[in-house]
Design a protein around this nucleic acid. Structure first.
Length: 822
RNA sequence: GCCCGGGUGGCGGAAUGGCAGACGCGGAGGACUCAAAAUCCUUUGCUCGAGAGGGCGUGCGGGUUCGAGUCCCGCCCCGGGCACCA
């Protein structure tokens, strides 16, 4: 489309200006009020796509708006530059992940620069920078020393496609890898873990203090999965010196326990199995251990959990409430990794137990009275206790307390809190990540690499193939080393750290990236932290956002970040996704729409305005056939702004007329609307309000009766300032034309609405009869209820409409509405 | 199955219990032009009507209210999250 000005030239000019002059560089000794605005640092996958553009457009609006509000705004940029895609691509192309990654970083940076977003580029960080790795490794060792990092053998998630283990958080609920989509396998391996479970309670409680979307908060609460209950003993029938320990959240249903179940991995299992049952139990356990997590957990779907595989162990335990002996089963619906790995089963009040009991013909005893009409199925809701001895008649909460006391006295019962959250598995058997800085010595075992030898950087001449072992393991020069303690032969850890460890602290490095003798100065970091506004995609709702919260808490506790607030991100905004043909836009789907083609036509400003205008920022955007036209519409609006600013046929008069006054009022009302919209993240309505203002000014300036010069100048100046955080280039250009030699539009302050002008001098009051609008009257905004009623009833149209009928009621809501009810 | 969102013109969307459809896209008509593009103006929920004007209308069915897109109850559909965690 033809533009009234050279968009590319204008945008290049201002981008160069901001960069050369370091307009958005901010120093740590800045005395203005501070504001830390941050977009999640990207994985460098190539040129920016529309998701990035959307993210950085919102971020830049916040940065420029808060700057105009007089704050010192920290706005850094960097790259989450370690990761599997680079390694896989490098294997394919016979290149090195670093070369590949740095080429992608350059591409992304170039397209981000052309967006014209304001960043302090001096603070740029990237994960694979040895200067950054040094501190990633230092933190690992600090965690190790504090007992927060440990090595253990465990059943872990192995992704065959990625040729590495994964954290629980990276496995989707259907048992596939969130990255490659491969079915994740279970393997018993010795791996490094971070003790995130130590922080489960605090991670859960502090969610309440965060200004985050409820959706994200709920997801994190569910992920942590706190449950309160009792752990107690079920004594073995015939040998009361031994017992099966179980966990339950419903001790009150104890009288309904008709059997018990242990997980196939339970350590006591083979003590319980009698000779006659050995064969069937062996078969069951073998099947369970071969089955993938998916098969084991997803089999309950359709038939309401009828597929409950299990076998009798041959042993019995005593129900401590009824003193009756009940059979012990082994079944794969009980998990070895949660609670005690064994449960008391109450079929009448638990769906899973009900399904199992039905299948295996076990007795079902109700202990809670279900509501009328509930039927024979399991019932786990509120109700009076029945068949429950001393708890009969109690409600669930009261019975829980009574049952807990009973178990404490009679069955070694202890109140217990369990979490679904597991420790964070951080080992990865891949090359392109931060090496774990420990060595293994035959004499001294696990030995930390001395801090002065950090960073441990992987050598370049490594054969990278996906063998299931870290590529570093085959590099003799890297692998073989000496023990820092005894100098004897030792071997290096060859696994690398999960890349989520890198992204768990980058926001701290941004606050003080200039120092080389430590990761950051806690005093400098404390000036900026916590991040005032964090912006990113919903896909990080659990992974990155939970890990970062854990990191900061741990870093504060171990003395790396003393004095910092314990939460990294005060406010979080999660933007919607861009969809093409209904599916998420992503490089792997090959459906990216690059911004470059728009930069040359509608400009970065046009594209930015589109992203702001298309809908609520939190909503997904469908990229359709009509999107091109919508983007052009945004560019057209900017052209109209440009033309109005250059309009030189205006006839001016000296007196301020009523029309001029009304324009001033519109201008100030728009200030109020846009300011409010900015605070509420309602950017689409802000754009609409500014468009309306332009229409008003434009029509008024073209009138033959003329316009008041000072009013036109004020109006245009305010319009440019309101628009400046959204479309920074064109507004900077027009402002410079209008105010040569003065500070630029981005250095001006955010306009303030004059309350006396925002108020309306007269308003339209609607008059309804039985809820339908029958007349409109111009009234004073402070009309009284009586006057409003009188005016409504006196109106000619209303009188005519009523035809003498007497209203039964008149509801007046001055000054907006009067409703006459017949 | 459970927990969140959401359902408004041809399309994206707006609307603190008070004029439904702001703003934009698209469409229609007009001005300018030799012509086109660009620009500017008018118009644009559906429907009945020549017109004035009327009726209907925010997924469906009820309810509360003088008044409901908005609040309550029960459904339907779409999207997302969780899913044997005892």
């Amino acid at each position: 489309m033809a533009r009234p000005f050279d968009v590319s030239a204008v945008e290049k000019k201002w981008q160069a200006c901001w960069l050369d002059e370091g307009t958005y560089d901010v120093d740590n000794d800045d005395e203005r009020e501070r504001y830390y605005a941050l977009c999640m640092y990207p994985y460098p996958s190539g040129p920016a796509h529309q998701g990035h553009i959307r993210n950085y457009t919102f971020g830049d609006l916040v940065v420029r708006y808060q700057t105009m509000r007089g704050k010192a705004v920290l706005s850094p940029f960097g790259f989450d530059s370690f990761g599997l895609p680079a390694e896989n691509a490098a294997i394919k192309a016979g290149s090195h992940p670093r070369l590949f990654t740095e080429a992608r970083m350059a591409e992304l940076k170039s397209s981000v620069r052309r967006l014209g977003a304001a960043y302090d580029w001096r603070r740029e960080v990237y994960s694979h920078d040895p200067n950054y790795m040094r501190w990633s490794q230092t933190f690992f060792l600090a965690f190790l020393e504090a007992g927060l990092a440990y090595r253990a053998e465990a059943t872990v998630n192995w992704c065959p496609g990625c040729a590495t283990v994964l954290a629980n958080e990276q496995v989707l609920s259907d048992g596939t890898c969130e990255r490659s989509g491969d079915l994740v396998q279970r393997r018993d391996l010795e791996q490094w873990f971070f003790k995130i479970t130590d922080y489960a309670e605090e991670l859960l409680n502090d969610i309440d203090t965060l200004e985050w979307p409820d959706r994200v908060k709920t997801m994190q609460r569910n992920w942590i999965g706190r449950s309160e209950g009792v752990e107690f003993d079920l004594a073995l029938q015939g040998d009361h010196s031994r017992a099966l320990r179980v966990f339950t959240t419903r001790p009150d249903t104890g009288f309904g326990v008709t059997y018990a179940v242990v997980a196939p991995e339970h350590p006591m299992l083979w003590d319980l199995v009698t000779d006659s049952e050995r064969e069937s139990v062996t078969g069951l356990v073998e099947r369970a251990s071969l089955a993938s997590e998916l098969e084991r957990t997803a089999s309950s779907d359709a038939g309401g959990g009828l597929d409950k595989r299990g076998a009798f162990t041959g042993s019995f335990v005593v129900n401590p409430f009824t003193q009756q002996s009940v059979p012990v089963y082994v079944a794969d619906y009980v998990l070895g990794t949660y609670g005690t790995g064994a449960i008391m089963a109450v079929p009448a009040e638990d769906e899973r137990d009900f399904a199992f009991a039905t299948l295996h013909a076990l007795p079902i005893v109700r202990t809670t009275q279900p509501p009328d009409g509930h039927g024979d199925g399991p019932y786990s809701g509120e109700g009076q206790h029945i068949n429950s001895g001393f708890m009969d008649g109690m409600d669930v909460a009261t019975a829980k307390i009574a049952a807990t006391q009973y178990l404490e006295k009679n069955a070694h019962g202890v109140k217990k809190v369990n979490y679904r959250l597991r420790d964070w598995l951080v080992s990865r058997q891949r090359f392109w990540g931060c090496p774990i800085p420990v060595v293994y010595c035959d004499t001294h075992g696990i030995v930390a690499v001395p801090l002065d030898q950090l960073p441990i950087v992987a050598p370049d001449d490594v054969v990278m193939d996906k063998t299931g072992q870290s590529p570093l393991a085959t590099h003799e020069g890297f692998r073989n080393t000496t023990c820092p303690i005894c100098g004897g032969p030792a071997r290096r850890e060859t696994d690398t750290m999960d890349t989520f460890t890198d992204s768990s602290w980058y926001f701290l490095r941004y606050t003080d990236p200039f120092t080389s003798d430590r990761a950051f100065d806690p005093v400098e970091a404390a000036k900026w932290m916590p991040v005032d506004q964090y912006i990113g995609g919903i896909e990080h709702a659990i992974l990155h956002l939970l890990y970062s919260r854990f990191y900061l808490k741990a870093l504060v506790d171990i003395g790396v970040a003393p004095g910092l607030a314990r939460e990294p991100f005060k406010r979080l905004f999660t933007q919607g996704m861009i969809r093409l043909d209904g599916s998420k836009m992503s490089k792997s789907k090959g459906n990216l729409i690059a911004p470059e083609e728009y930069y040359d036509t509608v400009g970065a400003d046009g594209l930015r305005l589109f992203h702001l205008f298309v809908g609520p920022p939190a909503d997904d955007v469908d990229w359709t056939d009509q999107t091109e036209e919508a983007i052009e519409g945004c560019a057209r609006f900017l052209d109209r702004v440009y033309r109005l600013s250059h309009y030189d046929e205006c006839f001016f008069h000296d007196e301020i007329t009523l029309d001029d006054e009304e324009v001033r009022r519109e201008v100030h009302r728009t200030i109020a609307k846009v300011t409010d919209g900015f605070e509420r993240w309602s950017y689409n309505t802000c754009v609409a309000a500014i468009m309306e203002l332009l229409n008003t000014i434009s029509r008024w300036a073209r009138r033959t009766e003329g316009a008041h010069r000072a009013t036109l100048d004020e109006s245009l100046d305010i319009l440019l300032r309101l628009l400046a955080p959204m479309t920074p280039h064109v507004t900077a250009e027009l402002w410079e034309e209008r105010h040569p030699g003065e500070p630029g539009v981005h250095a001006t302050t955010w306009p303030e609405a004059d309350p006396t002008l925002v108020a309306h001098s007269s308003v339209v009051m609607v008059v309804q009869v039985n809820g339908k609008v029958r007349a409109r009257l111009n009234v004073s905004p402070d009309i009284t209820e009586a006057d409003a009623t009188a005016a409504a009833l006196a109106d000619a149209d209303i009188v005519n409409f009523l035809k003498g009928a007497t209203p039964s009621r008149v509801v007046a809501r001055p000054p907006r509405l009067v409703n006459i009810v017949l």
